[in-house]
Design a protein around this nucleic acid. Structure first.
Lengths: 242, 242
DNA sequence: CGGAAGTTTGAAGATACTCAAGCGCAGTGG
DNA sequence: CCACTGCGCTTGAGTATCTTCAAACTTCCG
C-alpha cells in the first residue's frame, strides 16, 4: 500500500474508529462520503504546542483524533481558567464562530492529531444534509449544557465534590472510548486540574491525598485507580431521593 | 385597526424594535418576511412563572420580547445555580437541542413576553437562508463564549471582582437597549445574584455596601446608580498593560 | 394595613489560600 | 550506567476570605 493511499484511508471518517462518537454520528453511507471529502486535512500537534490561540482567525473546527487537549481563557493580568479537557472524538473551536476569532487557547497535553473541518464547508454541507445540520446543533448545545454543569460545580461545590465529579467524568468518558472504567492516567498537572476546578494546586493535591487516605482511590502521581466508585458518587450533589 | 391586524404587526420581526439585536439581525427584507412567518406565536409569562422546566420536551427556541428571565440548573439535593439572566432580544432554550429535553428552568423575573420559534422550522429555514444559518451558529457560539467568561469569574475572581463584573455587564447590555449607562433597577434578588456569582446572599449584600462606602455606587435595594465606572472597571481582571 | 419576603449588618467559624520546604520522578548529559 | 537538574507533587503552618447563624429592619404585595 502506498503512503498516499494509506493516508487517504486513514483520514476517512467512514473508516475511523471514532465515527460513532465524532462528527459522522448517525450519517448514512453516502452522506459520510461527502463528509470525508470535507475533512481533507489532518494536523499533528506536539505536546505543549497550541492548536490555536486567543485572537487568531477562526476558520475551522477540529475533531480530536488522538491525544488530549485543554482549552483555556486568559485574562490580561495573567489569571487563566481551563475551560475544558478534550479527548478523542470531541470537537474543539466552537468559541471562534461568533466573532471569526478564537477566544481561547487550545493546547495539546500530549502528542495529538486532529481532523481539520473548514467551517464554511461544514455550513454548506449541513444545508444539504439534515442529519449533519442537526448533529452540529447538538454538538454546540452539548457544549452549552456541559458548561452549565461546570458552572454548578464552580458555583456550589466544595473541593472534594469538585474533584470527585472531575474524576468520575474523566473515567466515564475514557470508558466510552474503550479504556478502563476505574483506572486512568492524568494527562494534566495538578495546576491544570486546579484551574479547571477553581482550586489551587495544593488543594487538589491535598484532596487527592484525602481520597487515598479514605480508601476511595489509589494515587501515584499521574496514575489514578478508583477503588470505591460508589463512595465517590456519593460525594456528588445527587445523594438523596429528593 | 382591528385587534387581529395589530397583533400581526406587533409580532412581525420586520417591525420589531429589537430586530437589530435579535434573530433577524443582518437579514434581507425578503428573508425577514420568511422569519416573520416562522415566528407565528408569542407567549406571555407572568412574574415568577416558568417558560420551561428541566425535563420538559424541547421544541422551540424563545426570543425575549419584553421582560427579564433567569435560567438555572438544579441538582437533586436542592442546590441550584443561576446560569444566566436574559433580557430583550436574547435567545433562551439552546440547552434543549442536544437531548430534545430542557436541562434547566427558565423563570420570568418580571411579567414577560417571548417570541416562540419552532426549532424544526428554524432548521429548515436556515438551510435556505445562509445568513440565518450563520446567525444561529453565532448565537450558540456567543453563549459558549459567555459561559467561558462566567467560568473565569467563578474560578478565579474574588467577591468584589465578581460583583463589579456583574454590574458592568448588566448596564452595558441595558445601555445597548437604550437604557441608562449608569443607572439600573435589579430585577433579581440578592440570592439570585449570589447564585449566579457563586456567593451567598449576605456576601452580595456586604459587597454592595462596601462599594457604596467607597463611593463607587449608590444602592437603594434594587435601585443601583454607578458613580465611578472607571473604579469598577479597575476591579476587573484587566488592570495592567500586561 | 399587615404579613411575608427580601435586605442589611454583626460575630463567630470553616474552607481554601498563601507561603514555604522537602521529596520524587523524568529526562539529560557525562 | 549513574549522577544531576528541573519540574511537578506533597505536606505543614498560619492566614484570609467567605460562610454560617442570628437578629433587626425595610419593602412590597395582596
Amino acid at each position: 500500500m502506498s503512503d498516499a493511499l494509506r493516508a487517504t484511508i486513514k483520514v476517512a471518517c467512514s473508516n475511523c474508529n471514532l465515527r460513532e462518537l465524532c462528527m459522522p454520528m448517525g450519517l448514512l453511507p453516502q452522506e459520510l462520503e461527502r463528509l470525508d471529502n470535507l475533512v481533507a486535512t489532518r494536523r499533528k500537534i506536539k505536546r505543549g504546542a497550541t492548536l490555536f490561540r486567543t485572537g487568531e482567525a477562526f476558520g475551522s473546527l477540529f475533531a480530536v483524533r488522538t491525544g488530549f487537549f485543554k482549552t483555556c481563557v486568559t485574562s490580561e493580568d495573567g489569571r487563566d481558567q481551563v475551560t475544558g479537557f478534550q479527548m478523542a472524538g470531541e470537537i474543539i473551536g466552537l468559541d471562534g464562530i461568533v466573532n471569526d476569532r478564537h477566544t481561547c487557547d487550545a493546547v495539546a497535553l500530549e502528542d495529538a492529531e486532529v481532523c481539520v473541518m473548514p467551517f464554511e464547508r461544514l455550513g454548506e454541507l449541513s444545508r444539504e444534509v439534515g442529519a449533519l445540520q442537526h448533529h452540529l446543533h447538538r454538538v454546540m448545545s452539548r457544549e452549552i449544557v456541559r458548561e452549565h454543569g461546570v458552572m454548578l460545580l464552580l458555583g456550589t461545590m466544595h473541593a472534594e465534590e469538585r474533584l470527585a465529579a472531575f474524576l468520575l467524568n474523566l473515567v466515564q468518558r475514557l470508558h466510552a472510548r474503550g479504556f478502563s472504567g476505574s483506572e486512568l492516567v492524568l494527562r494534566m498537572t495538578r495546576q491544570e486540574i486546579g484551574s479547571y476546578l477553581g482550586l489551587k494546586l495544593e488543594t487538589v493535591s491535598r484532596t487527592f491525598s484525602r481520597f487515598a487516605d479514605q480508601g476511595l482511590i489509589d494515587v501515584r502521581h499521574r496514575h489514578v485507580r478508583i477503588l470505591d466508585v460508589d463512595a465517590l458518587k456519593a460525594l456528588l450533589p445527587q445523594p438523596g431521593v429528593a
